[in-house]
Amino acid sequence: MSLLWLVIRQLAEIEAMAASKKLITREEWEKKLSDVKIRKEDMNKLVMNFLVTEGYVEAAEKFRMESGTEPDIDLATITDRMAVKKAVQSGNVEDAIEKVNDLNPEILDTNPQLFFHLQQQRLIELIRNGKVEEALEFAQEELAPRGEENQSFLEELERTVALLAFEDVSNCPVGELLDISQRLKTASEVNAAILTSQSHEKDPKLPSLLKMLLCAQNQLDEKAAYPRVNDLSTATLEDPAV
């Protein structure tokens, strides 16, 4: 009886293991891939969506001509949006605020966090240019009242003003605020807000589809060994490790 019990137990374990991970050969997988038809029209839409969202206005115009794909937004608005983005990236925050208000005054009225971040960026630029008194005055008059209304704004303001306490910013614990990456972060936030105001997604579709692919492959790894794509740039299929 105990021997039979052992055999049955082993059989069950073998069955469980065999069923747990299926091996899909390259040939089988390529057959599945050949069953998938991706429409040119959909790929073109993805490309246009990327060009529009990321602000490649000239390329978007050329692509419209060459592929016949219509953008889902007026291309003229991209130029305006890019001008705002460029202004923030080069530190001309006042100019950027003016341009945003010209585009749509509601954007800053309905988004206090964005307005605060733009004002914070303006303060950073004053500090960067060594205009200490002007910076303090600006912080007191424009930013402090907002900090009183919102605890997180107050904390961000304190971090920014801390830059003034250090002559050598390289030793400053909040020195990263003076990095170009901080400008890019603010520029990206403005870009997203303008896109949202135009009823357009703030991020292009393609990166999220690529992330979805990485996630789908990770999930499928649990169930099967199959040819996967490890290098997204080349999209080369790699054989499953047996």
Partner: peptide, 18 residues
Amino acid sequence: HSPLERLLKQLTACKRYE
């Protein structure tokens, strides 16, 4: 197929397999 198309095929195949 361009790399983009191959990636979209791979994504679709993975999802359909699931």
